[in-house]
């Protein structure tokens, strides 16, 4: 017989991505067994995160400060704006350390299937940021770092149309052979994109 508190814990854990009822039971048992080392610190961390984490009103990033750490960083290049689909994409780009500009998180892509239109995404905020600049500095380039899917690129084309009158350079991430990729295993679309985007050497 499982008590109501444990049952609720299992139910909530089973809603996490990658966990089903069986693995949620194992996780709950593990937490209970490691109460001091894991369960209490986890509960505190969850409470602190729930109380303090906010969506940045400027770029849509998640942080405990408002605006977020990226938007507040004076060493960042505020003339470049990188548009990403989700916060996870922002984190991925940050992991590379290759980009030092600012971001704008759309919150998804246009999707006829799910009825997601421009008004459901952070498109008006993007247009306003580009039109008005950030902290008095004009935005010179918008990088559309959207997924190489039909939905992602449909959104990219839509944003290109909307940004075209705002006197800003618009670029997108390259599509092609991934690092470590073998041509034999690539799909036709990737190979075609790679051929079209080939570069001169030497």
């Amino acid at each position: 017989m499982i008590g109501p508190e444990i049952d609720r814990l299992i139910q909530l854990l089973s809603r996490l991505p990658g966990l089903g009822p069986r693995s949620a039971r194992r996780a709950a048992l593990h937490l209970i067994k490691k109460r001091d080392q894991l369960m209490d610190p986890l509960a505190e961390a969850l409470a602190a995160a729930a109380a303090r984490i906010r969506t940045c009103p400027v770029c849509g990033n998640l942080d405990t400060v408002d605006p977020c750490g990226v938007c507040r960083d004076p060493s960042r290049d505020s003339t470049t704006l990188c548009v990403v689909e989700e916060v996870g994409d922002l984190w991925a780009l940050e992991r590379t350390g290759a980009y030092r500009g600012l971001y704008h998180v759309l919150g998804g892509t246009l999707s006829a299937l799910d009825g997601i239109g421009p008004d459901d995404l952070a498109v008006p905020g993007l247009l306003a940021r580009v039109a008005q600049g950030t902290d008095g500095v004009a935005v010179r380039e918008v990088i559309l770092a959207l997924n190489a899917t039909a939905g992602g690129q449909t959104t990219a084309h839509y944003l290109t149309d909307r940004l075209s009158g705002l006197n800003v350079a618009i670029s997108r991430l390259a599509h092609g052979v991934p690092v470590g990729g073998e041509l034999d295993y690539l799909d036709d679309g990737t190979l075609t994109a790679a051929l079209r985007a080939r570069r001169t050497l030497g």
Partner: peptide, 24 residues
Amino acid sequence: PVRSPAGLYLDDPLRLAAIVAAAA
């Protein structure tokens, strides 16, 4: 997989729109 026309026309807004419209 056999062939993905959307992958071939990701850079072509009009053709990509035609593929997405036909499927929708």
